[in-house]
Design a protein around this nucleic acid. Structure first.
Lengths: 175, 175
DNA sequence: TATTGTTATACTCTATAACTATA
DNA sequence: TATAGTTATAGAGTATAACAATA
């Protein structure tokens, strides 16, 4: 822990960061700023409240949209404590959005599957979360397309992002 | 609360969203995905642990970089409960990164100011947070510049983002 | 013996209610 | 009487330790 801090201190004091990395860093800082301070934190909070789910439970729900998952796999994905995952799945079951089912081959294990109610809730959660902050509309339609194109490339390079969370290309209206 | 859910349900079921908004929405979803599931959550957690600060305390520190702030103003900015702000400032004082000082004109009020140690810690925190996920390097240097340019425009349109969190333009090396 | 998951418990983060001091 | 901030306390959210069942 002290080691990490020392490394940071070293880099923070001498300013000769390669230029290529500097651009990526500033872009990343922009993304952090948008998530940390704009309308985002309040809205995520509001969505969780509206559906009586914790942020952790909501993220699990997003992953379950891809199909039933053994608890073991969810643990690897989220790096939670096993007992905490138990409580999250308990909550999801109480809300009726997911249920435990026996693992087909390993009788020790259980799988977690999304219910029909879960699909309905997920659709609404995603709808509420997806509303962009007004500041994005500062960009022209063309610039917005540019931004989406670049961000999709970045997201595509992140293997751990569940399919339901990935942006989809916008198809121009057919009429 | 039920009203918000109903509105979401309505939008989630009929798919005729205006195309311009659809692009902004997908771009925003990409940003959410990067923050929710990539390397980001673990790293934010790690930084807070490394400096023994809570996420809330770290955000206050970022704001204080702009100068001393009355607690009242911090409450407006973060919409926390007053008693919770008290405990956050207590923590910042215990860590030696900020201190309370009397308000110059209103003897009821107090201002919170960053210490020299606070400036050192802030520099290291920002250094650690600013490391972009590897996926950003998927983009060419030119594309990274494009991305930064677009994101800076969006961030500039968000008035509540503190100066210390805003991305800075990358100046090409002078040699 | 190792692995999957649960129970019981404790710790951290955040909010609510009642209070003190100043305006 | 209203406002700035604190204390005491309660409630979520998350982790640690000991355990039961299956492999």
């Amino acid at each position: 822990m002290a080691a990490a801090r020392d490394a940071a201190a070293r880099e923070a004091t001498d300013g000769d960061v390669p230029d290529g990395e500097a651009t990526a860093r500033e872009a990343w800082r922009a993304i952090l700023a948008l998530m940390f301070s704009g309308e985002a934190p309040g809205r995520i909070h509001a969505v969780c409240q509206a559906f009586d789910l914790t942020p952790a439970a909501m993220k699990i729900l997003l992953v379950l949209s891809g199909g039933p998952r053994p608890m073991r796999e969810l643990l690897e994905t989220f790096r939670h404590d096993p007992s905490y995952l138990t409580s999250i799945v308990d909550l999801l079951e109480r809300r009726g959005v997911a249920r435990r089912e026996p693992h087909p081959t390993d009788r020790r294990a259980k799988r977690v599957a999304m219910t029909e109610e879960g699909r309905r809730v997920l659709a609404q959660v995603q709808e509420m979360l997806s509303v962009p902050p007004a500041s994005v509309q500062t960009l022209s339609p063309d610039e917005q397309k540019q931004l989406l194109r670049l961000l999709m490339r970045v997201v595509d390079a992140e293997p751990t992002i569940p399919a339901a969370m990935r942006p989809r290309p916008v198809i121009p209206p057919s009429d």
